[in-house]
Design a protein around this nucleic acid. Structure first.
Lengths: 355, 355
DNA sequence: CGGCGTCATGGTAACGCAAACAATACCCCG
DNA sequence: CGGGGTATTGTTTGCGTTACCATGACGCCG
């Protein structure tokens, strides 16, 4: 069998495809098996043989074919990262951490594009997800997915879910939304604020709902009445618009808890438009601790969310599942901490000047 | 040949591995080839047979094994995305666009983690990049890579470079740094500013150097003297520190052109600390048009960089290379446009008040 | 000096799939 | 009724790799 020189059209020209292990074997005068051993760094090869093989590898530019290797091993050494929206700070940072952590374990990270959450359904005969060349999947759900129960039945791959509601029968890693939101609201309460408005992310987002819920319960625990939650879409623009409306409708609150930093910036913008000052007239707390939080004017008090740790945890859990650990369906909550900067201050003693 | 039931340990239990095409064939009473035809949607199968096969596929939960398919076809239907740093706005947005564009073409995107640029060297015997299960590579270089010439020799995969110097013998896609920087500086000149300072990204960055260079040449073209460039590291913190030093050393300029929006925010912060106003005392222009630029206070005048288009262009160029198009080593420059907001204004007529 | 263990290397097979080719059944038309 | 298609299905083969087993060479010990 001479798999080399499969296209002897032009003598002297190198074969079209990349060199295979047999080409190297022939060039070095050894068996393919020995080349394989050298390529994989096994020790039971005589040094002189090894050198000869390495030379041939160099000469032919041989690279192991990962498809063949994957086929043989049944593994891909790759983690699938599924999200519906890479554009948010959290998803992007989580991906970053996942990519880094999986690299350390010798895995690559494959972005599995799912533009439409409903496509997680069994599409036709197959679930497309399972056809992908990955050993396991990290599913970052910032929004509700209708058919996740079906997914459970169908998916024959290890799965870890990030940023989701707690109710699903999977291993879950998430920021502790409750703990973080409690931190934010209690910080405002401690500063003496009693009239606090929450501007939240969209209804569809689990974390947005969780933060809004915690806002209400924390207010209730303090014996205070919560204002209606202003529902935005995470964007600064939406918060800007909502806060303008709020000011148009009645007296401003003394403090705002924004669902994320972007929205906090929008809120601050609207407050300033109104001729009010932050934090003297209105205090603002954000959520995320994005990079711009530290340099906005004033620097933003916010809840630091440890996306890196979320990503690292999700990755290591998934890798252990891939290695055959039983799926204990644990729920791992990553704690946050409050970063107090300049956008919050004690409540004014006098009444807020009407605009 | 009966590849099924490889582990008959527990009768009644399904085999350990996933069902193969042979298992389905046996279950449906047809040949593996027919299953393959059904799975790939070929038309030359009798409807009754097709239905029977589909039922068996369902029953066994069969999913095509992509490793075997890749091995057979020699393709992976995946694009490798290489960067040294996912955390920057531009890289992240570019990745997002690449992922979207490659999805549309039926490709996945694989993150090829390269923590250390020098690792692009031939490491040991192989270039690890070529071992990856990808059909081509998009290399996002925000910093200089020493051994790229070697890479050229070694890499046997289609390659498109993003965000790089123009000198390399590859197909290159980049934001038109010169055009964008010219826009920013001339905008300030048009407003009457004569004393303009540039706060740049790090020396190692091609785009930072290009922007600084354009700052100097544009000033020279206007017959003005450029101030020494303040070299930061893209972070708001670095710009904050540099601007503080600048103010400590002498009279402030009437305008600052910042290398990116983050740094512009840092500059504005420092200006305010000094008791000066933006834009009345000092105008500030950024670069990138990040989301927060629109809602910072004041809203930031900046150069909009179309990362989406960069990513889309890079992807379609790479896909055509993968499809066998000759590498014409074109250089594609994506134009920017200036977004004028509230951080720039006409130069003050009187002298700047000394602090 | 013979037997046995160890080391180095080679041969064979199989991973799962699909292209190429082969075979069969059926139909139409002369 | 037979030749030559067309439609459907089956068989063989090989993609590149590595696990497994076989083989041969060598050295050591009794």
């Amino acid at each position: 069998m001479t798999p080399a020189s499969n296209t002897p059209s032009e003598p002297g020209s190198q074969p079209k495809g990349r060199a295979s292990i047999y080409d190297v074997a022939a060039h070095a005068g050894v068996s393919a098996q020995t080349v394989s051993r050298v390529a994989n760094g096994q020790t039971n090869v005589r040094p002189t043989t090894r050198d000869r093989v390495l030379e041939s590898i160099q000469a032919l530019g041989y690279r192991p074919n990962s498809a063949a290797r994957n086929l043989k091993s049944g593994k891909f050494r790759s983690i699938g990262f599924v999200t519906f929206n890479l554009a948010t700070l959290g998803n992007e940072q989580t991906l970053n951490a996942v990519a880094e952590a999986s690299e350390k374990a010798g895995y690559t990270t494959t972005l599995l594009p799912v533009t439409d959450p409903t496509k997680l359904d069994v599409a036709g005969a197959f679930s497309r997800l399972e056809e992908q060349a990955v050993d396991g999947i990290i599913l970052v759900m910032s929004a509700e997915v209708g058919s996740l129960d079906e997914l459970k039945v169908t998916l024959g791959l290890p799965l870890v879910i990030v940023d989701s509601d707690a109710m699903l029968p999977y291993t879950i890693v998430d920021t502790d939304q409750e703990q973080g939101s409690g931190l934010a609201v209690r910080h405002l309460l401690d500063l003496g604020h009693r009239d606090i408005v929450h501007v939240s992310g969209p209804e569809i987002s689990f974390s947005a709902r969780r933060r809004a819920e915690t806002y209400r319960t924390t207010m209730a625990e303090a014996g205070l009445e919560a204002r209606p939650v202003l529902v935005g879409d995470w964007s600064a623009q939406s918060a800007l618009a909502l806060t303008r409306e709020l000011f148009a409708d009645g007296p401003p609150p003394t403090a705002v808890f924004a669902g994320n930093d972007q929205m906090a910036l929008g809120v601050i913008h609207a407050i300033r438009e109104r001729g009010l000052r932050v934090p003297e007239d209105v205090s603002v707390v954000g959520f995320d601790d994005a990079e711009e939080a530290a340099v906005s004017w004033p620097a933003l008090t916010t809840v630091h969310q440890n996306f890196d740790q979320v990503g690292r945890n999700a990755t290591s859990l998934l890798l252990s599942l891939i290695d055959g650990a039983p799926d204990t369906r644990r729920k791992v909550l990553i704690p946050t901490h409050l970063v107090v900067r300049d956008s919050t201050g004690p409540v004014r003693s006098g009444p807020v000047p009407s605009a």
